[in-house]
């Protein structure tokens, strides 16, 4: 009994200390050779080929930048790290970013990381542009999103991109997303559970979409492109403090990323080779899935569309009031 008290004390103490620690990012201090170091968090997905090209082709060096890429567990963890200044930039889709902004986490969008070409949602083969997919077993009785009511559907995380985008499919089809039984599963467990019938549908991201299709499952819908339609989805985001202290370096980052994005769009084969390396997936699996698109700008209207959709679906009580300068350099 007496032994437990110091433990409880330690817990309270560490919480207090954590509460006291402020989030002051490291100031911009160019190294002796004039380069500034930027620490960037990514989640290790295929579209990271963009930032890898910027590093490999020397675009960051041209801007006087030394970019250190590290892999973060998930976008919310990256946002927390970027806000506190542990890293300078993080990859996040627009939905976690909007969630964070709605809770007054001060963040700015620096550049686009991935997304859909304008007019992508009007194409015939949505699965060639959308790297997310909703899959069911070949013989499943689920034939349209509305059929998901009362069924179990796997998502990588709750209240995140896949749940939101699949919810919109269900709602647009006249169903009630609240009646779906959401299950949190990592992609490989999700695929296995779909094959063994433990979940009725799985929402997956490339390369697992192609793997699921190759194992005989049926693509029911492409939730990403139907939700976002077009424009930037994956974003490079920095904390407001970092924007203040490293403005010039971030301008350089933005220029280098857009140069790399343009290169990637023009050299898809080379980018897919990199995607295969990053995700440790055979090249033919990458090639059989969606072709990534790397936008060369972030438009406020695209972010606002996602914002409005989130509020319509009830994930936000009201659309977030986006600050006028939420997109860096606009």
């Amino acid at each position: 009994m007496r032994r437990t008290i110091p433990l409880a004390l330690a817990a309270v103490l560490s919480m207090t200390l954590a509460a006291c620690g402020g989030g002051s990012g490291p100031a911009a201090a160019p190294a002796a050779d004039g380069t500034t170091t930027l620490k960037v968090g990514t989640i290790g997905i295929g579209s990271d080929a963009g930032i890898r090209l910027a590093a490999d082709k020397g675009y960051f060096k041209e801007q006087g930048l030394n970019v250190e890429i590290s892999v973060i567990a998930n976008p919310p963890a990256g946002i927390a790290a970027a806000q506190s200044g542990q890293i300078d930039l993080t990859y996040t889709p627009s939905i976690p970013l909007l969630n964070a902004l709605s809770q007054n986490v001060p963040l700015k969008i620096i550049a686009a990381a991935d997304g859909y070409k304008d007019g992508a949602s009007e194409g015939a083969d949505l699965n060639r542009v959308d790297d997310t997919g909703l899959l069911v077993q070949q013989a499943s009785a689920i034939n349209r999103p509305k059929d998901l009511e009362g069924k179990s559907v796997s998502v990588p995380a709750r209240k995140a991109q896949l749940e939101v985008t699949v919810s919109k499919l269900v709602k647009d089809d006249g169903g009630d997303p609240a009646k779906v039984n959401w299950m949190v599963l990592d992609p490989s467990s999700a695929l296995q559970s779909l094959n063994s019938g433990r979940v009725d549908a799985a929402s997956l991201v490339a390369p697992f979409t192609s793997k699921a299709a190759a194992e005989g499952n049926r693509l029911l819908a492409s939730p990403g492109v139907e939700f976002f339609e077009q424009g930037a989805i994956g974003l490079w985001v920095a904390g407001a403090n970092t924007v203040k202290s490293k403005e010039k370096a971030l301008e350089g980052f933005k220029a280098a990323i857009y140069k790399a994005n343009a290169y990637a769009n023009g050299h898809v084969d080379e980018a897919q080779q990199l995607s295969a390396e990053i995700t440790k997936t055979p090249l033919d699996v990458v090639k059989s899935g969606a072709v990534n698109y790397w936008p060369e700008e972030v438009r406020l209207e695209d972010i606002e569309r996602a914002n409005k959709n989130l509020a319509d679906l009830g994930f936000l009580s009201a659309p977030v009031k986006l600050p006028a300068d939420v997109i860096f350099g606009k």
């Binding site: 998930n74 919310p76 946002i79 976690p96 969630n99 964070a100 709605s102 809770q103 986490v105 995380a157 709750r158 209240k159 995140a160 039984n181 959401w182 299950m183 949190v184 599963l185 990592d186 467990s189």
Partner: peptide, 19 residues
């Protein structure tokens, strides 16, 4: 952390991920 998001741990994790 996995499966249906019920339970204290699941709710706390969800709260963390949605800020």
């Amino acid at each position: 952390m996995l499966g249906s998001s019920q339970g204290i741990g699941a709710m706390t994790l969800l709260a963390q991920q949605s800020f």
